[in-house]
Design a protein around this nucleic acid. Structure first.
Lengths: 323, 323
DNA sequence: TGTGCTGCATAAGAAAAACGAATACTTAAA
DNA sequence: TTTAAGTATTCGTTTTTCTTATGCAGCACA
């Protein structure tokens, strides 16, 4: 019997819902249903009486649920105990992040985390997306923060933030007036502008190009960089305009070096967002500090920079990062 | 984490041996090795220090081992508790057997079992092999006793006995003298005999045919039956000779209705044996009484009717029934 | 009485994991 | 050294598990 299945069963019971339990475990509703059925088959006993609505636990189900809870708790404690024995000096959470995750945001988290889990330390290293993956695979980092996570090959991606993207231009640019007047720029108006953007091959570039193609906008790419800092610098220097995640522009906007011009919402299209994900190695025990840190990061992800999520046809926590 | 893997780890520790633990769990040594490694990877900790010979548990391993033992025990108790709640009146072991498993043998087992596990009852039903599979799939029986178990599609087969097969003929037959003189008959001498045998399509028939083909023996099939009783009857009636498992002939030999003539051992070939297996649904919790009954059946399987087993290149409890 | 909605089950195909056979490797004993 | 025993590893296959798509039942609401 798979402990994960027992965990799903327990959450199904606790939340009185297969779908919710499924989401919590990052699997589809179907998988949760099958997991519970598998347990029932193995035991040769109904655990859940589905004939009534809402469904109820059978006596066997109640018994099994209580037992499972305890067993799971014990097992997790056991894993923690092994971890503690390995790192008697306390936990370190090693984070590998892409450059463009606002340091500002993270340092806030780190402070809160260290007061929450005393004795824990957080190491954050900034690097190129590919290196983030590498470091996680090599077990040099516990967590990675990246955009457009691709879930293949042994990673689990937890959706984190969705940063709205907007046009960045120098304060003297004709778009800047729109921003001052609290108006957005229609994507079409970008046509013909000089454009500073990301390297081809970065997922964010593909996302932007798709957006522009959809709105039939043709721009002149005057420079490409593999990181946001360089792009911002080029725009400041008057090389052209750029499309960047809003939160990454905070500094420059504050010191009036750049202006953010949001896109005017158009009826037909999804807004341009950059999804950030927390990734970690699959099938890997995360030590308690890491789990706590993830929880902290996710705790308020809905509250800022959040764009409405595209409702998936069926609940699946992973679905939004798989495409 | 798979509870089965934890079980393998515990047995590895208990027996200080991957291979033995593997056999106990009916998997290959490779699988056991991989299971333990998987646990280690998930924990990110060495459980076993392989640098010394014999290997030893690391401190983490010791800790984890103790925890696992308890967790597994608890889980098994939990499953049993669910079973008990379902069948409060006590356990019944429902056995489906092919016709030709000597009733005599089984009734002995049943008696011993009932004194061993008071309150348990054993239901034995005899039927055609196909029905045995059916009944197990339909959950009408807990265990099946069949020959030439084919492990495909959701069954687990536990090797049980290996019955040596021999020629059965009427006492007046020319072969009968060989038996009285304690000599065997060379397979070749069967050529030209009238032959009463099993239906085409039964695995035992294929096995016999293969044996005869190997020894280049050509016999005249005068009758085919789907069960041993009919074959024995036909041979008694003088229809010809048959090749049957020795233990199934006990009755007839005792009352001098038939004579068993063993094959003369030939250098080149494996002796003709009929493997009997205990079969049950895979991935299915067996209630404690069933487990106890299996244990009882297997306890002395080596001691009688046993032919030497072909040593497998690598230990695998299932290998001998898979072909 | 329909009509849409929500939540679970089921089917089928795709993806991932587990497994076994063969083989390499490692160490202890001969 | 060689041999033998026991474990790790590799690779291809089989089995399992998961997702997507769809079905189906009850419920709310018109």
């Amino acid at each position: 019997m798979h402990l994960e299945s027992l965990g799903i069963f327990c959450d199904v019971v606790r939340h009185q819902s297969f779908s919710r339990a499924a989401t919590m475990h990052s699997v589809s509703q179907s998988a949760a249903s099958q997991a519970v059925r598998q347990i029932e088959q193995r035991l040769g006993a109904q655990l859940i009486d589905r004939s009534t609505r809402p469904w109820r636990l059978t006596p066997e189900g109640k018994l099994f649920f209580q037992g499972c809870q305890e067993i799971l708790e014990r097992y997790h404690e056991l894993e923690d105990a092994v971890q503690r024995r390995q790192h008697p000096s306390g936990y370190t959470v090693r984070v590998a992040s892409i450059y463009s995750v606002p340091l500002h945001d993270l340092s806030g988290y780190v402070e809160r985390f260290q007061s929450l889990v005393p004795g824990a330390t957080v190491d954050i290293a900034y690097m190129h997306p590919d290196q983030v993956y590498e470091r996680i695979l090599d077990d040099q980092s516990d967590l990675g923060l990246i955009s457009f996570a691709n879930p293949g090959r042994g990673f689990t991606a937890i959706p984190w933030k969705r940063q709205t993207m907007a046009v960045a231009c120098p304060p003297g640019h004709r778009f800047a007036r729109l921003a001052r007047e609290q108006r957005g720029v229609p994507p079409e108006d970008l046509a013909g502008e000089s454009f500073v953007t990301f390297d081809r091959g970065l997922p964010v570039r593909r996302q932007i190009d798709r957006f522009l193609r959809k709105h039939e906008v043709d721009m002149t790419v005057v420079a490409e960089f593999d990181n946001i800092e360089n792009i911002k610098q080029a725009v400041e220097d008057g090389a052209g305009v750029a499309i960047l995640p809003v939160p990454t522009l905070r500094q420059e906007v504050r010191r009036h070096a750049l202006v953010t011009v949001p896109f005017r919402a158009s009826a037909d299209g999804a807004p341009l967002v950059r999804p950030l994900s927390i990734v970690h190695r699959r099938k890997r025990r995360l030590n308690p500090a890491v789990t706590a840190f993830i929880k902290l990061l996710c705790a308020d992800d809905e509250t800022r920079d959040a764009a409405p999520r595209a409702p998936a046809p069926q609940a699946s926590a992973a679905s939004e990062v798989t495409r």
